[in-house]
Design a protein around this nucleic acid. Structure first.
Lengths: 357, 357
DNA sequence: AAAAAAAATGTACGCGCGTTCATTATCTCA
DNA sequence: TGAGATAATGAACGCGCGTACATTTTTTTT
């Protein structure tokens, strides 16, 4: 193991005090150019690199942005379009801001003890993915907020709180998707929901129901899944497998279903695969619209109409905003307001909902 | 900002010394159960959490595994199958080992100064993705090795060095892919290569050429791309776009090409898209085999025959091995040998190379 | 040329924790 | 019951750095 070179040795070699070495590396205070060069030269000779841990310790700042990832059973989390895009966006911003990105994987059984993440001081701020709206999570997040720790939720709205949030207009996106199907003349449109503990699942449901109500296909007071005809409502958990399972449940009713709106592409693809097993071909026997506009949507057969969500930009924006709040406020002294943005979604039409009869 | 609770306050409340608090939290030394409880109670009351940065500082160990990511222009890096799977594997192991994962994004212009990553002490070990075999990178890696820092390359072999490496048998995988095409009766088989600066690109080329030589379709002394008929060799950079570009170059020669072996699925898909524009339909006008067996391979039309690579396991294994080397050796005192593993690949046959004529 | 101001550098301390060594309390066995 | 052994705890230091404050050197002003 190479011995650790400290500023003390650099100081000795350069014939200055340790403080001066520190000043050179932090670029603080007035400094004679000649001594600066001497110090830099000595540092180079000794191959000195400031110890980042010690710096963090002294500065009381780690230079890390934490990213909290949910536990997703049996799935390679980075391989899901949603997470990979969000993380790419965060990564981009983190790089631009000179931070590092520290990933925290949530462990299945464990309570999500967010505040310990901060108290441990390993991160200066954090972005939380896959938060769920449960009382215990809310309580944890409140603690974070009370502590003044900068954090931001992505794709999850906690109504009644003023947490920093970056979300997308899933309700509008879903509405437009279903409207598209309606405009094509379909009437019996089924909805394949994702896991209900995410607020954005509810958003999609609301968009779907609004479109259906407006078309006179649902009573005006229909609000909850229970208000839907059972053969039009299915529930999965955003996984491919759950889409396949939904196919088994849906297949007996397919004579009464013309089109399906699935809450993400993955489930849509699983559903298509599953229904194919029963001889139902998408784009011929039924129309289908997915959600996320993942890359897979471009290559399925038929190509999948889907709702594009700016996940990358959401990640980038969340990181940017939360890093700006590090240190408890902006440079002019005031603390920053909490922010909550909702980015637009966009329907991308492909062939999976063409009328072919 | 919530005031930071230190062990001092816990010690006072519990009526013990700071050292005792420390012992309780590190579970060292004999300890009267009663005092342990008093301390834990006091810690709970004050909501004390040890400061991870200070711990790292004192222990001279960060508890982080570094992951160095290459700069990939214009691509969302987490959204590529290869990286996302490897990262998932690393993430899994990191979680199991009680470490955190610190991502380091390489910056385009900057020299890859690996050793500074270690000297800065932010990570105890690291896994390097997308290393290239250039003199400067080799030199940097040598420095790491000389320093005794545990690191591991994934999917990149540096011949002549004894770096820790986790690789896959790309040569064998490519050989089998091309053999499959040969067995189906194809003779004019083109090769779409990836970026040559990665050793695994060369591996694929070798596998392809060996199969072709064995079939008597290339002279025995053919070794380099230059030894191939130009209409059979194309070069991309593993991106979708480069596959589309390759289609433009390949299209004029397609009357002399029966099948294509592409170095990854992404390029294969791009190629299929591109060739379709010219009216050439995969599985009808030409056969095609991809590489990686990404999820996209299952959903293309036709489904893409591809070579499965255990990326997830590679990531997991690399992390496991490198973390075992933290601290310069194993528990029994001896330093661990450097390791170099090569995992098997597997051909997954789908419909893209069926003979349909 | 002396006084005042500004620039440049040094001294010294603390950040929170792990850990060694010294000290005190408790137990064991005769 | 007392000596030795062992368990339990405390005191003190250093990890490498940032930085407030003190000191010295240089420049500017009168």
């Amino acid at each position: 193991m190479a011995a650790i070179v400290t500023r003390k040795e650099v100081a000795e070699l350069a014939g200055v005090s340790e403080a001066t070495v520190s000043r050179v590396f932090n670029d603080v205070g007035p400094m004679k150019e000649q001594t600066r060069q001497r110090v830099l030269q000595a540092a180079k000779t000794l191959n000195y690199h400031p110890n980042a841990i010690a710096q963090s310790f002294a500065r009381r700042r780690s230079g890390n942005l934490g990213v909290v990832l949910p536990y997703v059973p049996k799935v390679h989390i980075f391989s899901t379009y949603y997470f990979s895009e969000v993380l790419s966006g965060i990564g981009e911003q983190v790089k631009a801001s000179g931070y590092d990105m520290l990933l925290k994987f949530r462990v299945p059984g464990e309570e999500s003890d967010y505040s310990s993440i901060f108290r441990s001081q390993k991160v200066d701020a954090c972005v939380i993915l896959g938060a769920t709206d449960t009382p215990s999570e809310r309580a944890e997040l409140k603690k974070l907020e009370d502590g003044g720790f900068p954090f931001c939720l992505i794709n999850q709205h906690m109504s009644g709180e003023r947490f920093n949030e970056v979300d997308a207009d899933h309700e509008g996106g879903s509405y437009r998707a279903v409207r598209h199907l309606l405009d094509l003349g379909y009437r019996n449109i089924a909805f394949l929901s994702g896991s209900p503990e995410f607020s954005n699942s509810g958003d999609r449901l609301r968009g779907y129901m609004q479109a259906m109500r407006e078309a006179g296909l649902l009573p005006a007071e229909a609000k909850a899944p229970g208000d839907l005809p059972p053969h039009l409502y299915y529930e999965g958990n955003y996984s491919l497998t759950s889409g396949i399972k939904a196919a088994a449940a849906m297949h007996p009713h397919l004579n009464r279903i013309e089109a399906v709106f699935a809450s993400n592409d993955r489930m849509a693809i699983g559903l298509m695969q599953g229904l194919r097993e029963y001889g139902h071909v998408p784009g011929r026997d039924y129309a289908i619209v997915g959600y996320d506009d993942s890359e897979a949507a471009r290559v399925t057969d038929p190509p999948l109409t889907s709702v594009a969500v700016p996940f990358y930009e959401m990640g980038r924006l969340a990181a940017e905003q939360v890093l700006r709040r590090v240190g408890g406020g902006n440079e002019t002294g005031g603390a920053l307001e909490s922010f909550s943005v909702k980015l637009d979604t966009r329907l991308v039409v492909r062939q999976s909902c063409r009328i072919l009869r």
